[in-house]
Write a protein that binds this DNA or RNA. Structure first.
Lengths: 214, 214
DNA sequence: TCTTTTACATACCAAACGTACGGTATATAC
DNA sequence: GTATATACCGTACGTTTGGTATGTAAAAGA
């Protein structure tokens, strides 16, 4: 049975979601600098008071958005694990090449409104100390949790470090592509770079597979 | 002989340089969002009128800063070419490993106030259309010029593409490290990732060397 | 000498910013 | 019924923003 309280809480939850969605949209379209409370409100039918009720400050709105984005990616892995991640996908099955998997990851996760909004926040976190204090621990936790998806039990310390570093190289590269995009007017060229990267990384991912005993 | 005109022009040039330096400092410390005209002026003994004289709008100030940063890196290559670039360094001489060269590049070029300021502007360019129209052509030119340092004459089309893509992978990776830094409280860990990347890339850089006939 | 240009200074502006706060409606708890 | 909590509304505040208008001093060119 759905009580009146549940309905009310549901309404509040919907408002929160709408505000976060609008925030993501603003971050993607306007960037962090131009994402103001007014702009967020323009994109959604919510009053100024309602926003301040759910998110007492702009910083709280950003934190709420980060929480949503981090859990979104974790959910992505949990749902499809272990076949969701490009590396896992190519090492656990023969459906498609590593290059295809990496390009798909770029298109479905990184080069999306959510992925770009996430990058905007990470970039802002670098210089906003108050934001950094609240977000950095979340990022370190999240990073750790992600790594767990690709670390089968029983690995020795050296192998764990090897896998972890390889994953970080992949993440650093793919995030750097957001910058690199600005240097190329042709979007197909981005795909070309990713495919070349996949070719170079392939042997090292096979190494990961061997070590994990899969 | 130094005329009074020269002195005056020199004075103006000094003011421009000071403003750009302060802008870089603000971008590095505060990020693009918090880099305002007032903040830039706080860091330097120049009046508001003087700033508006040299840079009629905030956008002009950013463009001026970009011009400075781009030419700074080009100068770096021109001075030390062909031994300045990590790849060239390791392929043209035996002084140090590729890993050392890449770490040095990270520390001396990317992870500096100028490098971080540059990243802030690139990131802002993604969403600021007016800025993008003025900066993107500069970036494409600059990218092209940089590539020329590592493309010896006489390479066939396929080899050129191969070298170009390898360089772009390196650049994308190292720029992505600026994001990645936010995920790790230990700065030494960044160096570890770069060294692992160097290990993976080494054979492909030797390939470049062979193809270029060096 | 007179005019123009360059370099800089001061004062001010409208617009936008994030935040605070008083108020309404509705639900639950006692 | 009364108290309390939640969800939401709308206005007003003080500050900061990028930008402009107007002025001065000095050097250059006519």
């Amino acid at each position: 049975m759905v009580s009146k309280l549940d309905k009310k809480k549901q309404r509040g939850e919907n408002t929160r979601k709408a505000l976060i969605k609008s925030t993501i949209d603003c971050l993607d379209r306007l960037g962090y600098a131009e994402t103001s409370i007014n702009r967020v409100l323009e994109g959604v039918d919510v009053s100024r008071g309602a926003l301040m009720h759910h998110f007492p400050s702009k910083e709280d709105l950003v934190i709420g958005t980060v929480d949503f984005l981090l859990s979104r990616i974790l959910r992505h892995y949990q749902q499809e694990s272990p076949n969701s991640f490009p590396f896992a996908q190519v090492t656990h099955s023969d459906n498609g090449t590593l290059a295809d998997a990496l390009v798909t990851y770029w298109k479905n996760i990184i080069d999306t409104p959510e992925g770009r909004a996430f990058s905007e926040i990470i970039m802002a976190t670098r210089t906003d100390k108050a934001l950094s204090l609240r977000i950095s621990p979340k990022l370190e936790d999240w990073n750790e949790q992600l790594n767990q998806f690709f670390l089968p039990p029983g690995l020795d310390e050296e192998a764990i470090e090897d896998v972890t570093l390889t994953l970080l190289i992949w993440r650093s590269f793919i995030r750097g592509m957001i910058f690199q995009q600005e240097f190329h007017s042709d979007p197909d060229y981005i795909e070309k770079i990713i495919r070349k990267f996949a070719m170079i990384m392939e042997p090292h991912l096979r190494l990961v597979q061997t070590q994990s005993g899969a």
